[in-house]
Design a protein around this nucleic acid. Sequence first.
DNA 1: CAAACCAGGGAACGGTGTTCGCAGTCCTCG
DNA 2: CGAGGACTGCGAACACCGTTCCCTGGTTTG
Lengths: 231, 231
Amino acid sequence: MFAMEPIWGRPEAAAYGPRPAHSRDAVAGAGVRIADAEGIAAVSMRRVAAELNAGTTSLYRYLKSKDELLDLMVDKVLREDEPPGPSGAWKADLRVLAEHARAMMLERPWLAEAMMARPRIGPGALRWSEAWLSIVGDRGRDADEMLTVASTVMKFVFGAVMWELSERGAGYDPQSWMDAQGAYGDAIIAGGRYPHLIRTMVEAEGPHSADRHQRSFSQGMEHLLNGLEAA
Amino acid sequence: MFAMEPIWGRPEAAAYGPRPAHSRDAVAGAGVRIADAEGIAAVSMRRVAAELNAGTTSLYRYLKSKDELLDLMVDKVLREDEPPGPSGAWKADLRVLAEHARAMMLERPWLAEAMMARPRIGPGALRWSEAWLSIVGDRGRDADEMLTVASTVMKFVFGAVMWELSERGAGYDPQSWMDAQGAYGDAIIAGGRYPHLIRTMVEAEGPHSADRHQRSFSQGMEHLLNGLEAA
DNA sequence: CAAACCAGGGAACGGTGTTCGCAGTCCTCG
DNA sequence: CGAGGACTGCGAACACCGTTCCCTGGTTTG
């Protein structure tokens, strides 16, 4: 497997020559600004260059590819959002860090997907990894258990956030969708092939409430933490 | 909120006119074949049309947009992979269904991301939702608890799969990356800013083993199930 | 048989990421 | 101090992309 060198392994400034008019961080910042304001789809090389009053292809003096631009954008955001440090109570600390990570990713709907698309090995991402591990690392357990606990929580957080974003992006929530749909929704109910699904939709309060994602996340975290505590 | 009608709510065949040369399912099948063989990035309207020996723009007789093509591809795969039914032992059943879902998504690396990108409301997706809920629905609990249990497990499974795929896609695993990297890897270690991270890399056996993802998944599932059982 | 309707698909539009090559700028070395 | 060379900025161009328009020709209904 080729160990393609990440952008953080390459020096930013050259030894010789004219001073660059911009910087990696400025390029990343322009990308973040556009993604926040107009969505990740609006982040094109031309658009980012325009944001910087630069020629489109000048960006390739700072980056090898658009993927690297996304790497820089992700890491800039992670670097500028400091993870809360451990207090010593690992369960509470995991709760706090998980909530913080969730809020961060919900605030920038493009972030979670961009993080999952590429390795997370920039300085900002490493600091977040360190934060997760430092919470579970001060127990007496061995390194493998540290890893299991931390990565299990991280996986749940990512999954929960992507789940929530997928509903938000579609402007869709399960209950109102069921109500609003015409022929297809009726066919689903009339078909009788999904009894548990329909019973849940009808009986459960969760899907109707406005804070159902927050509640579902908190409850899931609580059960998960209980399971990890018993281990 | 606009309830944009999903493709499953629209009839496939028209009343009048010549018989269509293809079908939605054939179009979806062509897309799946290309995605499986050449990756999701190779799935373009032109490429799919070529696979069917059709004109590019003929596809728009079957679909409104490329997004709908992805909807059909996802649902076709879900429809053709039958979820294992419940045996009555809910914990074991959740384990089995989770493993099945994980294997399915790992086999087609494009599937998980496509599933998260759009609402999952086709027949195949509904049958999978029904399968999850039918496992937890035959306990005496109320509907909200059913939902919490099922969705918590689903979120963990998605998060775990996307995590694994993000490493695979980069041809990167944390340990070998640490070993292979030159200047940047050294700087990480020398800097001393990530003590827990480095200790984990050095001491843990997990990151070195070939089946570390499977093991991490199984262990996480076990802890999660224990926590859900106690609830 | 005529009218209405629909499937197939070529041409074209405005985007995309990226490569190439060139002009001009600055640093280093003789 | 001057020359060579490395470097930056960037316009032009390429091969694609998703999608709309519009026309031809086939099929079904009345």
